[in-house]
């Protein structure tokens, strides 16, 4: 009985995190960003992935991230956008999982790694889809924007983990 109630709680928590991620994706899609480089964004939805990673572990984070990206694409996106989001999300999460295990960075550092790797993943996808390496010219601004977005998302997730994290486990 106890086992089943904890599983229900876990299911509900994951569902909330996926929903929060989708809302953040949506909010971000309608938020204008005054930068002329494609791919520059805040990555607010990564707050839900990072929270899942620290509060519930790697498999939960993967599930939250994949569900959020797929459902957002189904509701608000298109196929090409989905490919970019997916490669960014997977690349970002893979590196965050690795760096979370290593005793090097706080969640902020891990989030910076995630932000930069998200943009790197999108550039790789764009280079493959458009069959050109000229996209590399976008790398410098995207590394910088990924770093700044990562710092913001890292601090936001840190606050959330400190306030809400204890009720999740």
């Amino acid at each position: 009985m106890k086992m089943s109630s904890s599983r229900v709680k876990r299911l509900a928590t994951l569902a909330v995190l996926v929903s929060v991620g989708m809302v953040l994706s949506y909010v971000e899609a309608i938020l204008p960003i005054p930068v002329a480089v494609p791919g520059v964004k805040l990555g607010l939805a990564n707050i839900s992935t990072l929270f899942a990673l620290y509060a519930l572990g790697s498999p939960a984070a993967l599930l939250v991230s994949l569900l959020r990206v797929s459902l957002s694409a189904l509701l608000f996106g298109n196929t090409v956008g989905f490919l970019y989001s997916l490669s960014g999300a997977l690349m970002s999460l893979a590196f965050m999982m690795i760096f979370k295990r290593l005793p090097i960075f706080s969640p902020v550092g891990v989030s910076i790694v995630g932000g930069v790797m998200h943009n790197a993943g999108q550039i790789i996808a764009a280079a493959l889809i458009m069959r050109t390496a000229a996209i590399a010219a976008y790398l410098p601004p995207l590394i910088i924007s990924g770093t700044l977005a990562g710092i913001l998302v890292g601090f936001a997730s840190g606050l959330l983990l400190a306030r809400v994290g204890k009720y999740i486990k």
Binding site: S106, V108, G109, G150
Partner: peptide, 22 residues
């Protein structure tokens, strides 16, 4: 915790230097 935050900062600075060199 302080060490980790210091390394976070180093990471951010290193990435911005990499971006500028690229």
């Amino acid at each position: 915790a302080k060490d980790r935050l210091l390394r976070d900062l180093l990471l951010a600075v290193a990435l911005i230097l990499v971006a500028l060199s690229v």
